[in-house]
């Protein structure tokens, strides 16, 4: 080895870095701006090439504003309803199927009363789990049609039954996903906190209200934002039941008016303009808080 000349480095230049495979994604804003500029250039090029009808684009893009409001509004209302319903469901799932122990002092907690209560808890847990697994394991597209048909048969004379059906479909779906988020959030609250609260004599329900819930809610902010984004994207299926949201408008412009490429570009801008800043927000929140293990993917 000593008599050999040491082999020369094949790759010159650039300083050898320890952490090649790990990154530092600096300057995201600059990247975003450059991407937007490139997209703009791309569109103009397409226009020049005659692929895109720029005049049409210019004339029609404002018609997407109203549908955008409907998309965002409907998503938010469904999300809020889902939130209210999912917190208790998530709490029940976090608690588990086992009832409360013999020492638990609950109202009506004689032997028989406790038996009933434990059965209720177990039954509730099973139902909640069935609901969550069922709704998360099936496509929202299918759920939507089931809700739709049930709705139009239950309220055949209601004027806004389509809107109601869409709202219900979104809500029922998001309840399931949010319940999982809350379950994980409640279960992530450090056991030490709970032990401390119980050791000063708090009852279980107080521990939940004063420790688990407040801390859990702080932990779930990030996944909830992700869930909103997810629901917002899912709302595009409401176009099938003729709710005049973004996808519906895009379909109208694309198929009925015959300009699918222009429609695509416009609706893409609208969707991305809402989803990208929000997901940047979550990345920023994640970097700030760095709560490990609470950022699971919420797909539909």
């Amino acid at each position: 080895m000593d008599s050999e000349k040491p082999p020369t480095r094949r790759i010159q230049g650039g300083r050898a870095r320890l952490l090649e495979v790990t990154i530092k994604l600096g300057r995201p804003a600059l990247a975003l701006v450059i991407t937007l500029e490139m997209a703009l250039v791309f569109v103009c090029l397409l226009g020049l090439m005659g692929v895109v009808d720029l005049a049409f684009l210019g004339g029609h893009w404002t018609s997407f504003g109203g549908p955008a409001v409907i998309s965002v509004g409907l998503t938010t209302v469904a999300f809020a309803t889902g939130f209210a319903l999912a917190v208790p469901m998530g709490a029940l799932r976090a608690h588990g199927p086992r009832g409360f122990g013999a020492r638990t002092r609950l109202r009506g907690a004689g032997r028989a009363g406790r038996g009933v209560r434990n059965a209720l808890v177990a039954g509730g847990y099973v139902s909640a789990t069935g609901y969550v697994e069922g709704l998360r394991g099936t496509p929202i597209y299918v759920q939507m049609w089931i809700v739709f048909y049930v709705a139009i048969f239950t309220w055949p004379t209601f004027d806004y039954v389509y809107l109601l059906a869409g709202y219900l479909a979104l809500t029922l779906n998001t309840v399931a996903y949010q319940a999982e988020v809350f379950r994980a959030g409640f279960q992530s609250v450090a056991q030490g906190q709970i032990d401390a609260a119980r050791s000063i004599g708090m009852r279980r329900i107080q521990v939940f209200g004063h420790v688990t819930l407040p801390q859990g809610l702080r932990l779930v902010t990030l996944p909830l934002v992700n869930e909103w984004i997810s629901l917002f994207k899912a709302s595009s299926i409401l176009s099938f039941i003729t709710i005049k949201e973004l996808m519906f408008q895009a379909n109208h412009v694309g198929s009925n008016l015959g300009h699918p490429i222009e429609a695509f570009l416009t609706v893409a801008v609208f969707y991305l303009a809402i989803t990208i800043p929000l997901s940047r927000l979550t990345s920023w929140l994640e970097a700030r808080n760095r709560i490990p293990g609470l950022g699971f993917a919420t797909g539909r």
């Binding site: 995201p28 917002f232 694309g254 490429i261």
Partner: peptide
């Protein structure tokens, strides 16, 4: 890579499917 991720995660899949197909 970031552009790819932001675009394809930011768009609803239905929109991607229908319009890429139509286009």
């Amino acid at each position: 890579a970031t552009g790819y991720v932001e675009f394809f995660r930011g768009m609803p899949p239905l929109v991607l499917i229908v319009f890429s197909s139509l286009s």
